[in-house]
Nucleic acid binder design. Structure first.
Lengths: 184, 184
DNA sequence: CGGCAATACATCGTTCTCGATGTATCACGT
DNA sequence: ACGTGATACATCGAGAACGATGTATTGCCG
């Protein structure tokens, strides 16, 4: 499984769980989710849809196109639903650490109906964020923003720290809510 | 030029501008910069080095390995320096919008000695961050965190907003400094 | 009425990615 | 003496990414 492929496929499965829709529609949603950063080429999306169809995860039925060419409306199969849940419940480490993939996971995490499983993922992310790490090292020691003279590199570290803190505080709040929901 | 390839090559050129070094060393630096998120496979890095060597952007000289196998110490050629400056001065839009690529640019922006050219890039990024955009849309209207009920999707928007604000404030501060430096 | 943009999908070929595997050396523990 | 792990690089093959290009329809503007 190629790296972006996994993310793209998760997004396809997730959006189709939201609602059956055709490729062009999917493309726009994916462009918003992961692609206001880096657009998905059509020649990447359509083969991905075919892969998933061939794997029996989704089915297509052709509709006369509203306003244009005929549409292939895509629907998740039962296996598709199962596979989505599997991918949400047991993500690879990269899905936790890579921000793009993590956001993709988050976007569909509600489809994993179990609050405990959801909390488990948030805790994995929290553990990752708490591990001391940097973009720059001196030997093995991670450099903090204050130790870097280059203003641009310092900017990277400053921004990353702000993000990290915002996310940690969100994680704590959300974990509290999830735990409260589990308790009653 | 494949997408990741551009980023990887920029990182190689940039780190070699910092100091001549061998592939294994590069790999660790790149892993820290872009890869505490997603590690670079050796079978991706070494071919990339070869591409750049073949293009005349870097030269290698073999050294008896300290502690292990012989090293190929890599050095930027004159064309390598020129190419690095070219890539820093005229990045594609994706380099501005994709956070990973933007951070890679930032990491080496100091090598673009001209403060005006540096400021120009920061302004492009600022313009991108100020454009209203979201991860989720209702029709054409970007949804704000408050309008999303799903706590996980709301988290995405909350975190993204915090990041965006931290970065904008850093951008403003840094642009002021750059302009002050230009004025005298 | 002509052209252009948007909708909607498809194919092709080049280039890149990456896991698997291999080779070789040194350090360190046991 | 032996295995393990780190250092350091290389090759191969399957598969994925993407730009270019094509096809077809509808709607709108001038």
């Amino acid at each position: 499984m190629r790296h972006n492929a996994a993310m793209l496929e998760l997004a396809i499965l997730g959006f189709l769980h939201d609602a059956p829709q055709h490729g062009y529609e999917l493309r726009k949603r994916i462009a918003a989710l992961t692609g206001h950063v880096k657009p998905v080429a059509e020649s990447t999306l359509y083969p991905a849809i075919k892969r998933l169809e061939k794997a029996g995860l989704l089915a297509r039925r052709t509709q006369p196109g509203a306003g244009a060419a005929p549409r292939h409306v895509l629907t998740l199969t039962a296996e598709g639903h199962a596979e989505l849940r599997r991918r949400l419940a047991h993500p690879a480490d990269t899905d936790i650490t890579d921000e793009n993939r993590w956001f993709t996971l988050l976007a569909f995490l509600r489809h994993l109906d179990d609050p405990l499983a959801q909390a488990e993922l948030l805790e994995r992310r929290m553990a990752f964020l708490r591990r001391p790490s940097s973009f720059f090292y001196e030997g093995d020691r991670p450099l903090r923003a204050e130790e870097v003279e280059d203003p641009f590199r310092r900017g990277i570290l400053t921004i990353a720290r702000a993000t990290s803190q915002a996310e940690l505080s969100w994680l704590r709040r959300t974990l509290d809510t999830l735990r409260a929901a589990t308790d009653d």
